[in-house]
Design a protein around this nucleic acid. Sequence first.
DNA 1: CTGAAAGCGCTAACAA
DNA 2: TTGTTAGCGCTTTCAG
Lengths: 328, 328
Amino acid sequence: MSRQTVSNAINNPDLLRADTLARVRDAIEVLDYTPNQAARHLRTRSSHLIGMRLAPVQEFTASATTDRFVHALVEASREAGYHVLLFSGGRVAEGERPDPLGGYDDLLRSTSVDAFVVTDTYLGNPQTVGLTLRRAPFVAFGRPWDDAGAAHPWVDVDGAAGVQAATEHLRERGHERIAWIGWQPGSRIGEDRRAGWHRTMATHGLSTTGLEAAVDDTVDAGREAAAALLAASGPTAFVCASDTLAVGVLHALGERGLAPGRDVAVVGFDDSQVAQVMGLTSVRQPLEEVAVQLVAALQALLSPGHVTAPGVLLEPRLEVRRSTTGEY
Amino acid sequence: MSRQTVSNAINNPDLLRADTLARVRDAIEVLDYTPNQAARHLRTRSSHLIGMRLAPVQEFTASATTDRFVHALVEASREAGYHVLLFSGGRVAEGERPDPLGGYDDLLRSTSVDAFVVTDTYLGNPQTVGLTLRRAPFVAFGRPWDDAGAAHPWVDVDGAAGVQAATEHLRERGHERIAWIGWQPGSRIGEDRRAGWHRTMATHGLSTTGLEAAVDDTVDAGREAAAALLAASGPTAFVCASDTLAVGVLHALGERGLAPGRDVAVVGFDDSQVAQVMGLTSVRQPLEEVAVQLVAALQALLSPGHVTAPGVLLEPRLEVRRSTTGEY
DNA sequence: CTGAAAGCGCTAACAA
DNA sequence: TTGTTAGCGCTTTCAG
């Protein structure tokens, strides 16, 4: 039997007669044969590898997105027959800005990966532009905020809807003075999340004046903002743009002897481990679903004669915990 | 000029005359040439890929090791000319035990990776046994607890020393009734960490009776254990086997109106994001250094005529925060 | 020090 | 439906 028949048995089983196929499969079993990926890769020009650049670790933050997302991506890729290749943008010298395309080009040109998953699109996604120019296949986790006509597939989570759900939850529990602690202007994600709060307040005819702070994404900034808001306008509930800020609010409450959920309600964003162990109500992004959709988009993208997939916007879910219910 | 000269220019530059080398390098620059990895991989039978299996995500835990370690490994690998290939053990059916070798075999046999980094050696490391049998090159993050004669290179962090540092720190601050909240017996890592507490107490002639609890690694278990110990023997400080347990202690203190660091001191283990944002003193593993050592061991292992590298044991560092000092 | 020949293991295209 | 031919792009011999 020729090697070609074996190749067909593996890649195009329906080309073989049933009994031939069975014979090949038996032989594969007996000989414990595994195809050599390198040779296949060289021949087919496809590595079945998805590249993903890891952003630098954020310490002293409550964010937990990366870890969960990487897991989800690995799992989703596996089911689609891909593996995930991680790389970093390289060490960034003090005071220098990281190269937005660092690491991508080499991997692609050396045919090490078939495509990329781009995750840090919040920076006005310079790399999507670059990748587009170089015609690298990629899908993005994150909307092309500034470019409605962007041609690449993307998947994102509707932050505004998540914050809206959080605000509605607080409204249902009787809160009317619901404060927002968000980020400094300039972040599209931050503006999106804030919009969810603002429009929900408007819907219910609730005033937002004096109930808002825009600060850096640190625990201390959240704590100070909460302290100032508590002193100035006495909100009974806080919705925050991140778990990090929400933890700051928890600290501010603790310093004043206020019990989260009983005296003042707090909601965070991202459902980080911090939220989970501290009993913080938080908006949880469906990262598993994001990964599945991204891989699906990638497969479509890599298929011959693919149609340009539109973007996908997923709804997050509110994880209700003690910090808004007061119940253990 | 023959292609061979180009190959040499890239892989064995010292074989060429200086001017030839320069000419080749110019041409590479001008033509924007990048070697095809697949072809190189096929020819040299080395993919320059390190495989690492991702353990399932632990939710509702304060652990943060994976994320930081993966980052560190990617960075260390990059500097050594490797990339990290992530894979999962596959979905585990309800009630079934995960296949300890799931995913490894295929990757190795198909020559997709050169070697593995094995991280989940705490389970009595069945996969190190399996990998040894199959003669797969690998290095382990974690000691071969049960097999002193294990032949593979490993790197680990001295948990006992970390807990010792934590206990000494508390002793220096005047604490004498220092309690330990650890895990159920059976975990070597847990026993190791506990030993650090026990021996430090003995060194200072402090009694340990009634100051110890062994529970599951959950926030609630930590909270209940702390409550029971506080009621029974009134410790003034707690050292915990994990940040998760330490968070439980923080909850128990909060319920009793006790201020962490001022009334009762608390130390965790792992320096998770939770510890960082909650101001929890914690033992931090030097994961960056672990990754560097692992990659170095891997390179030695893959070099022809390598010597069997011994294990490396690294010292963790205590991150002192509010939960033991009381100071903001 | 440089060049020519051979082949890594596989699969797309074609021929039988 | 199966077998034959050719070649993916590189590097390890070995000869000039």
